[in-house]
Design a protein around this nucleic acid. Structure first.
Lengths: 147, 147
DNA sequence: CAACCACTTTACGTTAACGTCAACGTCGTC
DNA sequence: GACGACGTTGACGTTAACGTAAAGTGGTTG
């Protein structure tokens, strides 16, 4: 704050460098197609910790990334508790003791296994879908012909 | 059917051809590491429809396969309702009308998209895990050295 | 200034997917 | 014939992840 600019509080905030932008809860909600309620809930569960300007929450890049990762984790079937565990350990990493770090590596390995199984599941499921789709198309063909 | 065999009702059921075996609810539960309660619940939700011998349920290969597919679907984050929808349509396929079949194809396409996104999510998540793991290992290294 | 947003907290409601418990029937066996 | 293992129905409990409604705050806009 060495150069007191004419407080451009009303700036549209559109052309700022990515990491200096801030977001309201509503903006963030629209970006990720969730409700504000969801975002507040994630905070309550310890997944987010936005800055506060008075009452209102102010989200920075860091928060946006966290939300993104959280939602990705959810799509992969992780519970919020699991996601929080990883996030907490990640935050505590720099000054984490060896035991904690090993625990973190354990968790990561676990997630990895999980995803390997998911990959296999997806492959199998895709075959099933192929199969079902083929049969469905066959039946449709017959209908078209005999009509 | 044509050759009436001496009803081996008490047979241990171990060396029978796969598709003739039957299972109790407990067996099935152990096979898939779920509780009987879960299996009954799936039936109640229309995902299974085992034969009945008196009171007790008797599961055939078909039921086992369905359960397997159901659990796989669950691991991929599908709701029981979604899974049921596909199963029902699949069952109704032979005499399904064109509209239903098209609807089925729609659903399948939808699931496919879902899985594509999941694949992408998994790739991204794996990178994150790689990253976090690397940092964790670095910190551990330092601890080992400075100790 | 009134009206209107967007945001806040508090609190109770809801849904999916089971868990748990009670009370009972049916075998095989010791 | 008591016992234990397994099965049944029915009903209520539980947890996660939000939804929803009420009531208030703070800024700007006609």
């Amino acid at each position: 704050m060495s150069t007191p600019k004419p407080e451009a509080t009303l700036a549209v905030n559109g052309s700022l460098p990515r990491h200096r932008r801030t977001y309201s809860i509503g903006e963030l909600a629209r970006m990720f197609e969730v409700t504000p309620r969801t975002i507040r809930f994630y905070e309550q569960e310890g997944l987010l910790a936005p800055e506060r300007r008075g009452q209102t929450r102010i989200y920075h890049e860091k928060d946006r990334v966290r939300l993104k990762l959280t939602l990705r984790g959810k799509r992969l079937g992780f519970s919020l508790a699991e996601i929080r565990e990883v996030i907490e350990m990640y935050d505590a990493m720099p000054d984490g003791n060896a035991r904690q770090l090993r625990r973190l590596l354990e968790i990561l390995a676990d997630k990895r296994n999980n995803m390997e199984r998911q990959l296999e599941d997806i492959r199998l499921m895709q075959r099933e879908l192929d199969d079902v789709e083929m049969r469905a198309r066959e039946v449709l063909e017959r209908l078209a012909v005999t009509d």
